[in-house]
Amino acid sequence: MTPLLEFRNVTKIYSKGLLSRATTVALDDVSLRIEDDQPTIMTVAGESGSGKTTLAMLLLGFISPTHGQILYKGKDIAKLQGEERLAFRREVQAVFQDPFAVFNPFYTVDHLLSVPIEKFKLARSKREARDKMEEALNAVGLRPEDVLGRFPHQLSGGQRQRINVARALLLKPRLLVADEPVSMVDASLRATILESLRRMNREYGVSIIYITHDLTTAYHVANSIIVLYRGSVMEAGDIDRVIRDPQHPYTKLLIDSIPWPDVNRRWGQTEIKAREQDHGSVETGCKFASRCPFVMEACRKAPPPLYQVAAQQAAACYLYEKQPVLAREQLSQVLPV
C-alpha cells in the first residue's frame, strides 16, 4: 500500500552566500514513512541546529530537498499541481511554536476559523460553517462562547494554541506537523494541549509528526521517536525503549539532562564533555565524535551506519557494530505505529 508520506533519502544542504563554498548539511540522508491506514504520532527530537525544523519545512513544501524525494500518497510534493496541490494543502496542516506570533491581531477568532472554511469550501451555509467551528473548538476543550468573537490579545497562550489545533482540525487533515507546540505554554496548560493532540490522533485518525526538544512531553504523546543531531539520525525506535533505555551516547546525554520533576532523580549523572564549541565544517566521521565520551578511532574515519540494537530500536554508533546493519531506507521498520 502506498504510504501517506514518505521521505526517500532526503538531504538538505544550505550554502552560505553566493560565492562562498561553506555549506551546512541541515538534514543528512533521512528516510521515513508514515502509513496511510495506521495513524501514529512520531516524535522528531533534537537540539537547536539538529535539523528538526528543516524537516518540518521540507514536509510542508516550504523548501525543497537538495537530494532525495518527499512523496505524499506516492506523488512528489514538489510536482503537485491543481486539485492535488490543494488537497495536499488541506490534508497536511501545521501548528507552530509561538501562539503569540501566528495570529493577525486585527482579526477575531471567527475570521481566523472561517477563512479556511471558505478557502476550501467546507461549508454550504453560514450555519454549517458555524457548526463546524463549534465542533472543532469543542474537540480541543474550548467553549465556543468563550472564544468566538474575541481578538487574539484577549486570549491566553494556551487558548491560542488550542485555537491553532482547532483550526487544523477543522480541515480534517490526514497529517499534522506540530513544531514545538507547547514549549511556550505554561506547564499547567501543556497537558490540555497534548491531550487535544492525542485525541486528534485517536478519534480523528490524524497522524502527527511532533517536533520537539522536550523529551518529557514526547514520551507522553508519541509512539515512536527519531533523534537527530546536526542533521543525522542518531537513534530511532519505540519511544518507551529509547527513553527508558537509550543506546546512543548522544541520546543518553539528552535524557540525562532532562530536569525531571522528581526530587529523587538527580540530573547530570553523565558528564557533559566539551562545552559548546565551533563545529568544524569538514568532518568525515560521526558528528557526535567530538563530544562523545566513548569516542574510538573508527568514529573519526567514517560516519557509522544504523545498527539494529533491538526489534524496535536502532542506533548509529560503532559501539553496536556487532549488531546487524539497518539500511537508512529501512528506518521505518523499527518505528512502531
Binding site: Q159, S188, L189, A191, R198, Y219, H220, D240, W260, P261
Partner: peptide
C-alpha cells in the same frame, strides 16, 4: 498539588492532568 499533578514524569505515561479553569 494540582501543579505537581499536572507534571509529566516517567511513571505516569499518557496521563494528562491539566488544571481546570482559567487563570
Amino acid at each position: 498539588r494540582a501543579l505537581i499533578e499536572s507534571l509529566p514524569t516517567l511513571n505516569n505515561k499518557g496521563v494528562f492532568k491539566g488544571i481546570p479553569g482559567l487563570a
